[in-house]
Computed example of a mutant assay.
Amino acid sequence: MIRSFRFTVLAGLLAFPMAAGAGSDGIVVDAPWSRASIGTSRPGVAYMALTNTGDSAATLTGLKAKISGMPELHRSGTNADGVSTMEPAGDITIPPGETVSLEPGGLHAMLMRLTAPLEEGQTFPLTLVFEDGAEIEVEVPILAPTARGPAE
């Protein structure tokens, strides 16, 4: 079983004094995970839960990952015709006191143009970038290609 990893951005970031109260200082990241990839020709993914323990909304605007030449926030779903779809999600706002889950079949971190395969048992750093300029780096464990959640 994979342990839950928790990271918090501290209030009053010295590098971003104007960002105080903008919301990202209360973000807690739980249970990040990914699946092993099939080489580098197919994209990878990363999932996690983002909880806003602060008093104001926080907006996730992007991702950084050395393992990916093109990390993006995506949304999967099913359209009115029953066809599965996936598209860029744009910015994701996390209201105060709420949790937004990046999970299979919904919002997720899409890791396109992999620079190396995602290998089971390894980890990789993924940086979450927020509208207020704050960044949270998360160490993402890589599970089996068939994993359906962090407990597997």
Results as ranks from 00 to 15, higher is better:
residue 133 G to I: 00
residue 132 D to F: 02
residue 131 E to V: 04
residue 120 E to P: 09
residue 114 L to F: 07
residue 112 M to Y: 14
residue 136 I to A: 10
residue 128 L to S: 03
residue 127 T to E: 02
residue 133 G to R: 01
residue 129 V to Q: 01
residue 107 L to K: 12
residue 138 V to Q: 09
residue 131 E to Q: 10
residue 105 G to F: 12
residue 114 L to C: 07
residue 116 A to M: 08
residue 138 V to M: 08
residue 131 E to L: 08
residue 123 T to C: 09
residue 130 F to L: 00
residue 117 P to A: 09
residue 128 L to A: 01
residue 111 L to A: 08
residue 132 D to K: 02
residue 138 V to H: 07
residue 122 Q to T: 12
residue 112 M to R: 15
residue 132 D to M: 02
residue 117 P to H: 04
residue 129 V to P: 02
residue 135 E to G: 07
residue 127 T to R: 01
residue 133 G to C: 01
residue 137 E to A: 14
residue 107 L to P: 12
residue 133 G to N: 02
residue 130 F to P: 01
residue 121 G to P: 07
residue 127 T to Q: 02
residue 124 F to S: 02
residue 120 E to W: 08
residue 131 E to M: 03
residue 138 V to W: 02
residue 113 R to N: 12
residue 113 R to A: 12
residue 119 E to R: 14
residue 135 E to R: 03
residue 114 L to K: 05
residue 119 E to W: 08
residue 133 G to K: 01
residue 122 Q to H: 13
residue 134 A to E: 06
residue 130 F to A: 01
residue 127 T to D: 03
residue 126 L to T: 04
residue 119 E to H: 11
residue 136 I to H: 02
residue 105 G to T: 11
residue 106 G to K: 09
residue 117 P to F: 04
residue 108 H to W: 14
residue 120 E to H: 09
residue 123 T to K: 09
residue 110 M to P: 12
residue 107 L to V: 11
residue 109 A to W: 09
residue 126 L to N: 01
residue 120 E to S: 13
residue 108 H to Q: 15
residue 107 L to C: 12
residue 122 Q to P: 08
residue 107 L to E: 10
residue 103 E to M: 15
residue 125 P to K: 07
residue 110 M to I: 10
residue 105 G to D: 12
residue 116 A to V: 06
residue 131 E to C: 04
residue 116 A to N: 10
residue 114 L to A: 09
residue 108 H to S: 15
residue 124 F to Q: 02
